[in-house]
């Protein structure tokens, strides 16, 4: 029974390493945590190990970059600007570009509309021609040729 409760306490330690380290355990849980450390050598070692690992977070945070990086970066940006590798978003650019796109879309729709109208006109002219031919045929009593299956052969 004692062994089982110790095992539970060890699991509690393992599950709360971060919370203990970050001081996020409630008073009662923190007490429980520390009480167990007094009697369990293995868990004490584990907590110490975890603490030493956690110090690496702090060490990494304190690493500083090269002090000359700022100058180097500005030089690089200036070089890129000089070579035109960074497009400028000037006022005229911001206005001109969308305006140009709108004009292109407008002109394209106008062309499409007028082309559509032309095609429509041609179709109606063709229909009129066919109607005229039919009228002429009926005026001159010209019958359409038919085969044995009564399919009409059109001469044109």
């Amino acid at each position: 029974m004692q062994k089982a409760s110790n095992k539970l306490d060890c699991d509690f330690i393992r599950d709360n390493l971060f919370s203990y380290q970050e001081n996020k355990l409630s008073g009662e849980k923190k007490q429980m945590f520390e009480d167990h450390l007094l009697i369990c050598h293995k868990c004490t070692q584990l907590v110490q190990y975890f603490k030493s690992i956690s110090k690496i977070f702090e060490a990494k945070r304190s690493d500083e970059p090269n002090p000359f990086i700022e100058t180097r970066t500005i030089q690089r940006i200036e070089a890129e600007l000089k070579h035109g590798n960074i497009p400028a978003f000037t006022f005229s650019h911001r206005i001109f570009q969308p305006l140009l796109v709108s004009i292109i879309i407008f002109v394209a729709s106008l062309i499409g509309f007028s082309l559509g109208k032309e095609v429509d006109k041609e179709i109606s002219i063709n229909l009129l021609r066919q109607n005229d031919i039919q009228t002429m045929k009926s005026d001159l009593y010209i019958t359409d040729f038919m085969d044995e299956n009564n399919t009409i052969f059109n001469n044109h």
Binding site: P65, I69, R72, R76, I77, E80, I86, P87, F89
Partner: peptide, 20 residues
């Protein structure tokens, strides 16, 4: 750190390219 410094330059250039 060296890679991070190089990356920071790329990030700043990217900011300038896409700020619009």
């Amino acid at each position: 750190m060296q890679d991070a410094e190089d990356l920071s330059q790329d990030v700043l250039l990217e900011i300038l390219r896409s700020i619009g």
